[in-house]
Design a protein around this nucleic acid. Structure first.
Length: 814
RNA sequence: GCCGGGAUGGCGGAAUCGGCAGACGCAGAGGACUUAAAAUCCUCCGAUCCGGAAGGAUUGUGCGGGUUCAAGUCCCGCUCCCGGCACCA
């Protein structure tokens, strides 16, 4: 009995999804075009093509897709593109193992992942796909490098850098987490190397200021603010006794200057060697410096590490008192923050206090609390200056400026702002990245490759050994070239760029993906930018998200762009959890999107991810949970296709009109403003339940209209089923090209409301009131209501609070 | 230590501007349909107590205070959990 005369009670997910996927791909309904209507740029962070989507990708692309589909239905010109962050080490490491060239494996991975995205029903405009490892993209990455170079924002510098021994390359500061490589977790060591940097510190204040103008989660803004680490203070210069030199320190507490009893240099400070030359302390200091240099960064910068130091034998002169104070070298001073030197003020700094106690240096108090009592040491608060020459008696806050001014007048210091953030180290000693477009000439130095010679393409004939320097260095016929300026023999730069450079501007390339003569056109970028909603993970809070803001500001300054912030709003989604923990292969709790999509289909998978938690919270996958979403979709399907009776019950019609209006309003707000997709889904469930209750009591025309509303509201969330229902309802165009429903606000106004009757705040009864009732009328009815009688009898009514449409609270004396 | 976020039934979560806590779903219980099961449909479902039941009382949003007619929501003081930073002068 396979014969089916009635509508089936379930739909075949695979058949439905295949049918519409094929049609959508043929018709390309998601092409973004500049149009005479408001634009909406919805972007999700593009993936590294590892070979397979993971559940985190499924979540982030679902969230973005809902937003994109919603705004399309609202009539916006929507840009919703996708691409590939395709340079990076995994492909190169795979090449070392397997011999398959990175380009080959990467492009194959892209093909597979693209097919997975198509299966998920994601509404990307594939005509705008960008792939950062292809020359038609990275030639512009190189062009942007040259722009930075011309503007003095890209420069080479020698110095100690972070080196990941496992990745065989250097890392930027942002890419070292607790002393370990962000990618592979190896302990990072130091190397002295000449490397390329982007001068992001020049934009520190603008990066801070911009945060006040964008709609990002507090959490992410706080992380960036802290990373930038702006700190207002002063420099103070201490002349060295018997030497022509001076030591410059940075302090945030110039008010405590009179309490400085010693000066400390970082072990790596360039002055150390000059200070000790010829002194009896020299050998001991050198030995100390050598020892400290070997200590790893994690240990070196841990707060709990014991403070160790050594006296250099040299003395400095206090700039205001002229006192002789000893110069030390100590492990707790960092060479790359401030000036790499500090003044030791033991009474008013925790670290200096510990140090001075250990080495028996004097600890004079120069700030006392307002109350005048003796402070417990170290006293790091503000107060009034004591023992501070002519500044004695001054409040410490005011003394900061006064002392800095005095120093400036004497030529011994000035006000100064320091930042924690360092310049961005972008060189990588790896093959699979965009080559830095520079030629090194022995006559002219580093010379920019002229624009018309871009791209500097990666050579194919290289060996991947994973050893030593960039594999590019071994490609002799590639490395050896001529100087673009003088024509003499020269060598190409063999380092490639950090892949974060590629991803710092991809959102602009989407505006002009086929432009062959510039990275993007200003006219197109100005139409689409800024990104209205950017969806991605929190792990990029100070990496990609900071770098992209920096790029946008530089391009704005160069006149290439009108905006100076790339991402107006940021939706930062939580992790996908399974079995109580973040998924990982090592924990054996990973879920494969392939299996899940095959079992439940894209719609149920999407719907469950949206329903089970708000976007920014972690989301736990559960088998029973996705079953619930699957059941709901089947229930909706049955509601639409099953044979239904009809009727003309005026009460039912009114109730259905009301819930229809309420649902449209709720789903509109939840998708559009609140991004509360979980409550949007629950509203649709309630609507569906209500339709089940009494849709048969109204006319066929009203039924059609109620169900059409359901299909359109469901379209952003479950695009395949919505399309199927839309066609079941007799339409021939796509539901995704239809219009978001509107509602008559009159239906939101209830003409009868049940309110709570409280006595002393406790609910004791209920009362149905008419919308037109006055407060007096409500109060009168409430007071005579029989349910309150036992509670009012024998008590004096002190007060009656009437909240229209909510409750009446009668306050009685005990 | 500092910064940010959080804590609500057995579970995920809702309560958007101080106004009836627990929407919606999951799990569970009962019932209908079925030869049976699945599926589906209907009902119940914070805790404690009273009651045969209908119903009622008390209590309840991490803890302790406070403001208010009214607090999950506001204020003060804590506890614990998650995330970030961590000798940054």
């Amino acid at each position: 009995m396979t014969e089916k005369t009635q509508a089936p009670d379930r739909y075949d997910i695979k058949a439905v999804e295949t049918r519409w996927r094929e049609r959508w791909e043929a018709e390309e309904p998601y092409r973004a075009d500049i149009a005479q209507k408001p634009k909406y740029y919805c972007l999700e962070q593009f993936p590294y093509p590892s070979g397979h989507l993971h559940m985190g990708h499924v979540r982030v692309y679902t969230l973005g897709d809902v937003i994109a589909r919603y705004y399309r239905l609202r009539g916006y010109a929507v840009l919703h593109p996708m691409g590939w962050d395709a340079f990076g080490m995994p492909a190169e490491n795979a090449a070392i193992k397997s011999g398959i060239p990175p380009k080959v494996s990467t492009l194959a991975n892209i093909d597979y992942m693209k097919q997975q995205m198509r299966q998920m029903g994601l509404s990307f405009d594939w005509n705008r796909e960008v792939t950062t490892c292809l020359p038609d993209y990275y030639r512009f990455t190189q062009e942007l490098f040259l722009l930075f170079f011309e503007r003095g924002l890209a420069y080479q510098r020698a110095g100690a850098v972070n080196w990941c021994p496992s990745c065989e390359t250097v890392l930027a500061n942002e890419q070292v987490e607790e002393g370990k490589c962000w990618r592979c977790d190896s302990v990072v060591t130091k190397r002295d190397l000449t490397q390329w940097y982007f001068r992001i510190t020049e934009y520190a204040d603008r990066l801070l200021e911009g945060l006040t103008r964008i709609d990002w989660p507090e959490e992410i803004k706080a992380q960036q603010t802290h990373w930038i680490g702006r700190s207002e203070g002063a420099t103070v210069q201490f002349d060295l006794e018997d030497l022509g030199d001076r030591i410059t320190v940075f302090t945030t507490r110039p008010d405590t200057l009179f309490g400085a009893t010693y000066v400390v240099l970082a072990p790596e400070h360039p002055l150390v060697e000059r200070l000790i030359a010829g002194r009896q302390e020299a050998d001991a200091v050198r030995a100390f410096v050598e020892r400290e240099r070997l200590v790893s960064d994690i240990e070196r910068t841990a707060e709990t590490t014991e403070k160790r130091g050594i006296f250099t034998g040299a003395y400095a002169l206090h700039p205001l008192t002229g006192a002789r104070i000893p110069v030390w070298v100590a492990n707790y001073v960092l060479v790359d923050y401030g000036t790499g030197a500090v003044m030791g003020v033991p009474a008013h700094d925790q670290r200096d206090y510990l140090y001075a106690t250990k080495y028996q240096l004097p600890i004079p108090v120069v700030v006392k609390p307002e109350s005048g009592e003796e402070p417990a040491l170290p006293y790091v608060g503000s107060g009034v200056l004591v023992n501070s020459g002519r500044f004695t008696g001054m409040p410490s806050e005011g003394a900061k400026g006064a002392i800095a001014a005095e120093l400036k007048a004497l030529g011994h210091g000035d006000l100064k702002v320091s930042y924690r953030m360092r310049d961005w180290l972008i060189s990588r000693q790896r093959y699979w990245g965009a080559p830095i477009p520079i030629v090194h000439c022995s006559e002219c130095g580093p010379v920019a490759v002229p624009k018309d010679q871009l791209p500097v393409e990666l050579p194919d004939n290289v060996q991947f050994t994973g050893q030593g320097a960039s594999p590019l260095a071994q490609a002799a016929d590639w490395v050896n070239t001529t100087c673009p300026r003088c024509g003499k023999p020269a060598r190409r730069e063999t380092d490639t760029m950090d892949t974060f450079v590629d991803s710092s501007w991809y959102y602009l390339r989407y505006a002009s993906p086929h432009n062959t003569h510039e990275p993007f056109s200003r006219q197109e970028a100005d139409y689409w930018m800024p990104v209205d909603e950017y969806v991605g993970g929190k792990e990029h809070a100070v990496l990609h998200l900071l770098y992209s803001r920096f790029f946008t500001k530089v391009l704005h300054d160069a006149g290439w762009l009108s905006v100076d912030e790339p991402f107006q709003s940021l939706l930062s989604q939580g992790m996908v959890i399974y079995g109580g923990a973040k998924m990982s292969k090592s924990k054996g709790n990973s879920l494969s999107p392939e299996t899940i999509l095959a079992e439940w289909g894209a719609d149920a998978t999407r719907l469950f991810m949206l329903f089970a938690a708000p976007p920014e919270k972690d989301f736990e996958w559960s088998q029973q949970g996705v079953e619930g979403s699957y059941r709901f979709l089947q229930r909706v399907y049955r509601l639409v296709v099953r044979p239904r009776g009809t009727g003309s019950d005026a009460g039912a019609l009114e109730r259905l009109n009301r819930i229809q209006a309420r649902t449209i309003k709720k789903v509109t707000e939840d998708l559009g403003e609140r991004r509360a997709f979980n409550t949007a889904v629950s509203a649709l469930m309630e609507y569906t339940n209500a339709l089940y209750q009494e849709i048969e009591a109204v006319s066929p025309e009203k039924q059609q209209q109620l169900l059409e509303t359901l299909a359109v509201l469901l379209a952003p969330l479950a695009p395949y089923l919505a399309e199927e229902l839309w066609h079941e309802l007799g339409h021939h165009e796509s539901v995704h090209a239809s219009q978001w429903p509107s509602y008559d606000p009159a239906w939101l106004v209830e003409d009868e409301v049940e309110i709570a009757l409280q006595v002393n705040g406790k609910v004791r009864g209920r009362l149905v009131i008419g919308a037109e009732w006055s407060e007096d009328q409500i109060q009168a009815q409430a007071l005579q209501h029989e349910s309150l009688a036992p509670y009012l009898a024998g008590h004096r009514v002190k007060k009656v609070v009437v909240i229209p449409k909510r409750l009446v609270n009668v306050v009685v004396a005990p």
